[in-house]
């Protein structure tokens, strides 16, 4: 799959982040391995350490396997003053993991994110590419069971 994605991009350094984003999104465990980094560095003609510096800088990228669904919960002030704490507690109880961890069935990873820009709907969270707003414990339960049900 990586090879096909690479072919779509010009062999310039500035394609790097685009490639990483697209590839990681399509990969089931949403992480990038050493071998893949070597392959990308070879394609773009940049050093592996440079690719690593990018992967380790941006929070979207992971070198550790993660869950099928990435749940990101905002940790900034507007969400904090609107009951983010309860939402996080509910999520941790429901998934039986702490923030930063992945469920045993590898279905969910729970992460913090910086502001999602949905402060008018605080507290907010993002699952994969979708943002959920005006959360409360009941709403969170419904959302998670929907994600569980789909799979």
């Amino acid at each position: 799959m990586l090879e096909e994605i690479l072919k779509k991009y010009p062999q310039h350094e500035d394609s790097l982040i685009e490639i990483l984003l697209e590839y990681q999104n399509k990969k089931t465990k949403r992480f990038i391995t050493e071998e893949e980094i070597a392959q990308i560095s070879n394609y773009l003609g940049v050093t592996e350490s440079k690719v690593c510096s990018v992967v380790s800088f941006y929070t979207f990228f992971s070198t550790e396997p993660r869950g099928k669904h990435i749940i990101q919960i905002c940790k900034d002030v507007p969400c904090y003053v609107n009951g983010r704490g309860n939402v996080l507690k509910t999520l941790e109880q429901l998934l039986n993991i702490r923030i930063g961890e992945t469920t045993k069935d590898e279905k969910f990873t729970l992460e913090y994110t910086s502001c999602l820009g949905n402060c008018d709907g605080a507290p907010a969270m993002r699952i994969d590419g979708k943002t959920f707003t005006n959360l409360n414990p009941n709403k969170v339960k419904a959302i998670i069971s929907e994600y569980r049900g789909v799979n």
Partner: peptide
């Protein structure tokens, strides 16, 4: 370019990859 700046903020280290 064996040495690079990895990670960010106070976790930034100067090191070879990984």
């Amino acid at each position: 370019n064996v040495l690079e700046s990895m990670n960010r903020s106070h976790e930034m280290v100067i090191s070879p990859k990984y």
